[in-house]
Amino acid sequence: MIDALLLLAMNFAGLLGVILILWGISVIIRDVSFIDAFWAFGMVLLAWGTWWQVGAEAPHAKLLLGLTTLWGLRLAIHLTIRWAGHGEDPRYKKILAYTGEKRKWSWAKTALVMVFLTQAPLLFITCLPAQLGIWASANDPQAIGIAGWIGAAAALAGIAFESIGDAQLDAFRKNPANKGKVLDTGLWRYTRHPNYFGDALTWWGIWLVTLDLGWGTALASLIGPVFLTFTLTRWSGKALLEKGLHKTRPDYAAYVARTSGFIPWPPKTRA
């Protein structure tokens, strides 16, 4: 069987090639916002690339491939539709303008360094549980155990939670009467970020499936869900998004005061 390091190196090389093609497209259309959709689809490509290289037919490999594909395709399609409907993400526009002016870089160089070459390794790290789990299962075709089934249930719950939250937000935004208001019903009553929570739950679930194969592979890929959770809660997810919402939504401070920031929980009060 192919060595794990060689497998990961080939996966990363393929990912980098696709990233550079996407960068070229962004230069032509002067918009990098579609990278969010590729964040999810790129993990599907990595999972299938691993499957293709190791030829794993084991139960864990099939489960990991299925969960990653279901999560990634659903989210990629959702984000692509959102990008097509709303156009360029103002967050990326602001980052590119600020960095380009500060460092005296061209738009193309700024997009390459600040967006595409940054996204590639982060995407790759997050997807390590699926990559290493599929690889390990090829040499250990054991039946799925308790940890694996718990992980699968958690991942499916995360996908469902995120999907419902996205649908509720889309419906809210389509109503002109809600302009400038805060969505605080449905799943959004219990967490300010059901989509982010769903993402984290999905990848912790996928990691549990990998853990079912043994602690060695699980520990080697633990950085994936840990990094994703940190990103969603402390770095570019929740923290960055809420900074803007406080400025554009007058009622957002009250919403923050009564609603859990990440893990779903009954609201403290009801305004």
Rank of each mutant, 00 (worst) to 15 (best):
I2R: 11
L6P: 05
L15C: 12
L15Y: 05
L15S: 12
L16G: 11
G17E: 02
V18W: 14
V18K: 08
V18A: 14
A37E: 06
F38M: 00
A40W: 09
G42D: 10
V44Q: 06
W48T: 02
W51H: 11
W51A: 13
G55P: 10
G55R: 00
E57G: 11
E57K: 05
H60Q: 06
H60P: 12
K62P: 04
K62C: 11
L65V: 13
G66M: 11
G66E: 01
L67Y: 02
L67G: 05
W71S: 03
G72M: 06
G72T: 02
R74P: 06
I81W: 11
W83A: 00
A84T: 07
H86M: 13
G87C: 09
G87E: 03
E88T: 15
R91S: 08
R91T: 05
Y92W: 08
K93T: 14
I95E: 10
I95Q: 13
Y98E: 15
E101F: 06
R103E: 03
S106H: 08
T110F: 05
A111S: 07
V113L: 14
M114P: 03
T118I: 14
Q119C: 10
P121C: 10
L122E: 00
L123E: 03
T126Q: 14
W135N: 07
W135S: 09
S137Y: 00
S137L: 07
S137H: 05
N139W: 13
N139A: 15
G145K: 05
A147P: 08
G148M: 02
A155R: 03
L156F: 09
G158D: 03
A160C: 12
A160G: 09
F161L: 04
F161C: 01
S163N: 09
A167I: 01
A167H: 13
L169S: 07
L169V: 12
D170L: 14
A171F: 12
K174H: 13
K174P: 11
A177F: 03
N178T: 15
L183K: 09
D184R: 00
G186D: 02
G186N: 06
L187P: 01
F197G: 04
G198P: 02
A200E: 07
G205P: 02
I206M: 03
W207G: 06
L208E: 12
L211S: 01
D212Y: 04
L213H: 04
W215R: 13
A218D: 07
A218G: 00
I223G: 10
F230Q: 07
T231R: 13
T231N: 15
K238I: 07
T248A: 04
P250I: 07
Y252V: 02
A253Q: 10
A253L: 12
V256W: 06
F262Q: 00
I263K: 08
I263T: 07
P266A: 11
